[in-house]
Design a protein around this nucleic acid. Structure first.
Lengths: 207, 207
DNA sequence: GGAATAGTGTCTCTGAGACAGTATCAT
DNA sequence: ATGATACTGTCTCAGAGACACTATTCC
């Protein structure tokens, strides 16, 4: 069963082993709505995922699956939870190590996106993974301005506010309170937005 | 490699599979100090753990390992993180799904306990698991009175304060502030502590 | 009464929230 | 000038923290 033996030929790891998959909720904001990348396979909708290969790190497996299935690259996926229900996969015992990552809209040009507010009936326990991912992203956006870097290099406070509103429509303070919370956590560029009506807004950068 | 085949004999899951272990930081407070249960095996100190068996849930594997190695029962372990470094175990590729659980001191009568402030040089990456577990426990104790239920059924506010101080010596407010934060989250029993010097303290219960 | 511990009235400080004002642009 | 949008001065309110005072027991 195991390939590992010590110098006397004694088996060191002689245990049953489960298949291990990584499944990832890839989140973005498009048209003011929080969306998730969904793949269709054998008539069922699910999150992109793959099985862990030999000699591969979990984060690398996640990147491989996303590159393969959606042409996405250069991400920093984060672990959420291990789903281990005995019958979660009808092909046998499969542990799913759920991950999440958030990326700018443009990166997902070719992917199939669905608004998280209306996604349901994903295969396996992928609805649960999505819920964990959204909760985590919202918690992060409550703490800091655009922690996932979804905005371009420079942006106005209105841009930032609209983004945060898309991530979590509730639980966002008023315009002035929002600015007072976020501005100390941003870097001012000293430049102004141009070509807009009204007083031009200052441009900020992440720190 | 795989035992799973469909009705036509086609292999459904034909992947390399890693060994999967669960390792658990069992925390408690003894003599006013936060401690962790440590086991010694082949001359190395480590957290209690085991390999996942066929048809077994992760939480059940955790309970089995603790029952076996320390006689501990009836716990509700929680997942922390999957450690997946390629060379973390010199016997081969082993994923470790780190867990934590906190239990009353008395339950660990037979276990070997070490204060977390001085524990180091545990085998594998168990120092990292312990750090995650302690951070998690401290975060929980900042939010609620004795969330892990380490105190007996009824207790005074001083008992509670001493416990929270043991879990996290820093970041604990003054006596009166502590009470104002905790009292709304407790249930009053209407009874008083007896046989102590000074004004008798009210007894509370968790909710 | 005195020592020891429990409990509280109240002041201050800080920060979130809300409102209404002022500032600066395009047209 | 006018309308539109960005920005801010300031009031209020709530909660954390600190201090000093009162309360109740044992000796």
């Amino acid at each position: 069963m195991s390939a590992y033996r010590d110098s006397h030929g004694k088996r060191l790891i002689d245990y049953w082993r489960p298949s291990v998959a990584v499944d990832t909720a890839v989140l973005t904001v498009r048209d003011g709505r929080l969306c998730v990348a969904v793949v269709e396979k054998d008539g069922a909708r699910r999150l992109p995922g793959t099985f862990l290969h030999e000699g591969e790190l979990l984060a690398d497996a996640v990147r491989r699956s996303l590159d393969l299935k959606a042409g996405i690259r250069g991400l920093a996926p984060r672990q959420l939870h291990v789903f281990d229900a005995i019958d979660r996969d009808d092909r046998g015992r499969v542990l799913s190590i759920a991950h999440m990552v958030a990326v700018p809209d443009a990166v997902l040009a070719d992917a199939r996106l669905e608004p998280v507010s209306s996604v349901k009936d994903l295969k396996y326990d992928h609805d649960d993974i999505l819920k964990l991912a959204v909760d985590r992203l919202r918690a992060e956006y409550r703490e800091a301005p655009d922690p996932a870097g979804l905005l371009p290099d420079t942006f106005t406070l209105l841009d930032l506010r609209r983004l945060h509103e898309a991530v979590d429509p509730d639980g966002i303070p008023r315009r002035d309170t929002f600015r007072r919370l976020m501005e100390p956590k941003l870097a001012a560029t000293g430049e102004l937005e141009r070509g807009t009506v009204g007083k031009p807004a200052r441009l900020f950068r992440r720190r």
